[in-house]
Amino acid sequence: MLLIECPFCGPRAEVEFRCSGEGHIARPETPENISDEAWADYVYMRTNPKGLHFERWMHQHGCRRWFCVARDTVTHKIRAIYKLGEAKPALDEPKTEGEGA
């Protein structure tokens, strides 16, 4: 179970949070002017990386704030936590270590 450092409340157990999936997905500015495919890309398509994943979490049972987490989807190590609106931190792609299948 993850220990997540809420940028507002401090380190808390995973059960207090909710993961909102991939972050940094921009809503198309003018949806009416884009194709069905482009709209579907926004609504449905996901990067789903094996390794470094930029995602959003929300401290549901705490301060109820959303924030950004850079997490390794293989090792579950949290590489960075930052607030909404801040830029993606530059992080190396991890080597796929520690997968004890």
Binding site: M1, L2, E14, V15, E22, E55, E99
Partner: peptide, 13 residues
């Protein structure tokens, strides 16, 4: 489990 993962493990909750 409630978040993306390529880990064949899982959580206690």
């Amino acid at each position: 489990e409630p978040y993306n993962s390529y880990s064949q493990r899982g959580t206690l909750p």
